[in-house]
């Protein structure tokens, strides 16, 4: 603990990130540049989220880290250990107990409260990047509110597939002004972007921070005749039986067998602990025994 400054980063770096966070909250959905530092993990492993978390953490925090909903994957485990070591904060897997949650590509199923902060790891913060590769141009497009291209992209989806095929990183409009990429969360999670909690987005390689204050208007882009739909696999969870949570499809044998399980591991475990059982819960328990 004494080997590191609190939460790893030096104080001047934290001030720079903190100023960016305040401006990001003041202009919801706008991408604020920041001088991203090299972190002791490669780009693509959540360096942006880690820097935002480091700037926000206080010693009393209880940290939860999830990767695609799971608390026990490599990325989540290593980031949790990083902050246990450098900030000495308590950690948890339970959504309800956490005060700061760093996430890669999911929003927890359990609604967040005003005492929680959600920090997203963001690969590409620019929603227009795959439509216009030049940063100078996308800056101008945001300045001029020139978002026609995004609608053309969604329209092309409909022309080609008969529906909007974009299923993750689904673009949203924030407070009627900025089009924002909510990071690659499934579009199932988009309605949860209107939250009680503060939501901060950190992109380390791209050196951008953006934010959503609580109770911020976040509208998923759509068309009158093709309204936005928060879709998920049409199944119940095979372990906990939930019919409303976002599901992962898991191949379980070489004969085409498959099961659907909650992507949010804490949600699934909590439900099973409360006695909810899904189609395959019994067989899974036998396997484990």
């Amino acid at each position: 603990m004494t080997d590191y400054n609190f939460a790893y980063l030096d104080e001047q770096t934290k001030r720079m990130i903190r100023r960016a966070i305040l401006k990001a909250l003041a202009v919801p959905g706008h991408q604020v540049p920041f001088a991203s530092r090299e972190m002791p993990m490669p780009y693509g492993w959540g360096t942006g989220g880690v820097q935002v978390s480091a700037a926000c953490l206080v010693p009393e925090d209880r940290l939860k880290v999830i990767d695609q909903g799971a608390d026990d994957t490599t990325n989540a485990v290593s980031i949790r250990r990083f902050f246990e070591k450098t900030a000495g904060v308590a950690t948890t897997g339970r959504t309800s107990e956490a005060t700061l949650i760093q996430t890669r590509h999911r929003i927890p199923e359990e609604p967040l409260t005003r005492d929680q902060i959600l920090v997203y790891q963001v690969p590409i913060p620019e929603p227009l990047r795959f439509l216009e590769p030049r940063e100078t141009e996308t800056r101008k497009m945001h300045a001029l509110e020139e978002y026609g291209l995004v609608h053309v992209k969604l329209y092309e989806d409909i022309a080609r597939h008969g529906q909007i095929a974009t299923s993750y990183a689904y673009p949203v409009k924030v407070e009627g002004r900025y089009v924002m990429d909510p990071s690659p969360i499934p579009k199932f999670d988009n309605p949860k972007l209107e939250s009680e909690a503060i939501q901060l987005f950190g992109a380390g390689r791209e050196q951008r921070i953006h934010a959503l204050p609580p109770h911020c208007q976040v509208v998923s882009l759509d068309f009158e005749d093709h309204p936005f739909e928060a879709s998920k696999a049409d199944h119940d969870c095979d372990l906990c039986g939930s019919g409303t949570s976002y599901l992962d499809e898991v191949i379980v044998d070489d004969a085409g067998g498959r099961m659907f399980v909650c992507s949010d591991t804490d949600y699934c475990e909590t439900r099973r602990g409360a006695g909810h059982l899904g189609r395959l819960a019994a067989t899974r328990q036998e396997d484990a025994a």
Partner: peptide
Amino acid sequence: SIQAAWGFRAAM
């Protein structure tokens, strides 16, 4: 380090 973290959390 700690007091700045508390101060920022309040400011944020």
